[in-house]
């Protein structure tokens, strides 16, 4: 069902990874994504993959749970793979009419697919091990220095909290509206692109109206609970840097060095 999408979902736990400060995890994730683009051969991915699996093992998030999240983005991965497979010139391995697969294309396709898989698993590790509220609190604190140049860090963080909270609600709402219109004989699958775009109107308008209703209800509920902006607000779980975060920081630097060094290893294939 629609609510099974793992992307952006928290897996409760108390592992050392869960206990890290959200800011550490946000920075580590950003760094990891950058490192995936520094990597230029499969050695790098081997190291990056090993590191990721170590983190997963420490976090005790079931591997099954993580891969379930991947199925939701499987199409994107497959699309990237196929595009790269057919689009690169080089030594031809297989050809049929205008379609050809080259050695270089195959390597590039594998390379991109692995990068994408690691990227998705890596970033979902952050959301899986960090409560949404800690994530947004962390983001708020990281963005705080930018409020000097007028960046509304509290508001951005609150918007993220609410967005994360209402993704499942809006997905269910969409599902319901699609089914209700299908029951009235609506057809979303046939016709050319313009007809299809037009057939979305019966879904989009009720969805907009629902979103406005939710927004209005939520705004009232927040006001009733004394919300008046970020000033003077406290937090139940204040986030603190601890010894674990220091250790994580050191590991991150070492890992960055290893990844950069991996660029100079000879290619495997």
């Amino acid at each position: 069902m629609i609510r099974d999408i793992t992307l952006g979902q928290y897996y409760p736990g108390s592992s050392p990874v869960h206990r890290l400060d959200a800011r550490t995890k946000i920075i580590a994730t950003l760094l990891y994504i950058i490192e995936l683009f520094i990597v230029n051969n499969f050695w790098g991915f081997l190291i990056a993959g090993a590191a990721l699996f170590t983190v997963i093992a420490i976090s005790r998030v079931p591997v099954k749970f993580i891969f379930r999240g991947l199925t939701a983005v499987f199409l994107i991965i497959a699309f990237t793979f196929v595009i790269n497979l057919f689009m690169v010139d080089g030594r031809i391995l297989w050809q049929w009419k205008i379609f050809k697969i080259t050695y270089e294309g195959l390597m590039r396709a594998l390379f991109m697919a692995v990068r994408l898989v690691l990227l998705i698993i890596g970033s979902s590790m952050m959301t899986l091990t960090t409560k949404p509220i800690e994530l947004t609190d962390g983001l708020e604190k990281l963005l705080k220095p930018f409020s000097l140049i007028g960046l509304p860090s509290h508001e951005i963080a609150l918007m993220m909290t609410i967005a994360l909270r209402f993704i499942p609600t809006l997905m269910e709402e969409t599902d319901k509206i699609i089914k209700a219109q299908q029951a009235r004989g609506a057809d979303f699958e046939s016709g050319n692109i313009f007809q299809r775009a037009k057939s979305l109107i019966p879904i989009l308008i009720p969805l907009f109206i629902s979103s406005f209703r939710i927004a209005q209800d939520l705004a009232l509920a927040m006001e009733a609970r004394c919300y008046h902006g970020g000033a003077g607000r406290t937090r139940m779980n204040e986030i603190h840097f601890a010894r674990g975060d220091a250790a994580a920081a050191i590991l991150m630097i070492v890992f960055l060095a290893v990844i950069i060094a991996s660029r100079f290893l000879p290619t495997i294939f």
Binding site: K176, I177, K179, A180, R184, P202
Partner: peptide, 15 residues
């Protein structure tokens, strides 16, 4: 769908 009409809960949300 012509033979079987289905009215969901809170159908006003489909208008």
């Amino acid at each position: 769908r012509r033979k079987v009409g289905l009215v969901f809960q809170y159908p006003e949300y489909q208008l």
